[in-house]
Design a binder for these strands. Structure first.
Lengths: 218, 218
DNA sequence: TGACATAGTGTAGACGCGACACTAACTTTG
DNA sequence: CAAAGTTAGTGTCGCGTCTACACTATGTCA
């Protein structure tokens, strides 16, 4: 059997968050590279004694300080020519970070930035294809799972949740139909609290009952 | 950044076919191994200049002589301890082979066998998890795509198609409801031909209009 | 010609989904 | 303190879809 050695195996992570009503992706700007000037996904080589998900989780933590958030394997990209420096296969993941968890993380810096998925800069390698696939997967999962709740903080209003759906799907949803759908999810719960107002009628606050669980519905 | 070299990257392929009303998986029996006596999925190391899908496709062709069938990436398995001989990450695929394409392939031999998914022998590594995941994915795709047509030959009857669904799902389906659902798929076509009888009323023969396309429905 | 075996067909009730517009409650300002 | 502004919150009706369910049609074979 052919056993020529591979150059390397990497993981890349599409880190999503939502801010200013936009779905955003964390990107790293590259220096000294065939791709200098471009941006790329946070990622790196997988050490020999580290699991794939473990590695992706570490990348996420190193870049954002965030841990314990939703992380799912996306796809593995392995075209021989995808990295001009040599053969690198990338096992990609995507992660969802609630905006409230991003306290200390610079929102935009020279080397790290949160870019709107629909206005990405030029990306290195095949990273734009990876981001597109991750966005598709996320949007698809909205329809048949409770994955959107991973973007919510401790307490949230139904309007905030609807806004998350609309931001990810890129289209407005009907308010009454949305509330019907969402209110008889088993994993969401009215806290009874009603405050946190603006200059208008205060909204009910809801809570996710099992915050780390993503349920398949329908 | 840590760059210790990986031992290797492999692909493994879950090759499905249907025969005798059973969903079966192609397995290879292992000799001289920590897993001697066990069976495993067909697979092997990925050469440095070969794409992942290309590699999986070659594995399939080498074991079965079959090419040009449905092949899809499933998942990448990379726990550090999954292979006792060293660090091997496996990018797994699954393939669907219509029974009619398996002319010359031995149905059961010492080193190659078609095993029913629900009666597998002991498998090496984490291959049973891989097979289970592939079966789940396939069953899920029956619901929202036309993937089942990948098991059909040139012409087929609706009863044959129903049997494929039932075999994969492991449960009987209502005949009338099934036919309603399937007859207004756009990608299926009545050939007008009606023969191919047993000792009973002959059935209509259908044809897939775009045999290599798997459509998403609903 | 009758027994047998599979092919083939329709309907009625339950349910889910989308379209659609107004009232409720709080804040701010004049 | 009244009115304007702003978001929260609510229900119904029609349509299409899914499910459950049983009998007739058409061939073969003895």
């Amino acid at each position: 059997m052919t056993e020529r050695q591979l150059t390397g195996l990497a993981t890349d992570v599409v880190v999503f968050t939502i801010s200013e009503h936009r779905l955003r992706v964390l990107l790293v700007s590259r220096s000294r590279d065939p791709y200098a000037g471009c941006w790329s996904l946070p990622g790196g080589m997988v050490p020999i004694d580290e699991g794939l998900e473990e590695c992706a989780s570490r990348m996420l933590r190193e870049k954002t300080g965030v841990h314990g958030v939703y992380l799912e394997q996306l796809y593995s990209f392995g075209e021989p020519e995808r990295d001009p420096r040599g053969r690198v296969v990338s096992v990609s993941y995507y992660a969802l970070v609630p905006p409230g968890r991003l306290q200390g993380v610079a929102l935009n810096g020279d080397t790290l930035g949160w870019w709107p998925v629909d206005q990405l800069p030029e990306l290195a390698f095949d990273h734009d294809a990876i981001v597109r696939m991750a966005h598709q997967r996320l949007a698809a999962k909205l329809e048949y799972s409770t994955i959107a709740l991973q973007f919510m903080g401790e307490r949230f209003t139904l309007s905030e949740l609807q806004s998350v759906y609309e931001t990810i799907l890129g289209e407005p949803l009907d308010k009454r139909n949305f509330r019907k759908r969402v209110r008889n999810l088993p994993c969401i719960e009215d806290t009874g609290e009603r405050f946190r107002a603006g200059k208008h009628r205060p909204a009910r606050l809801f809570r996710v009952t099992r915050p780390h669980r993503v349920e398949i519905i329908k």
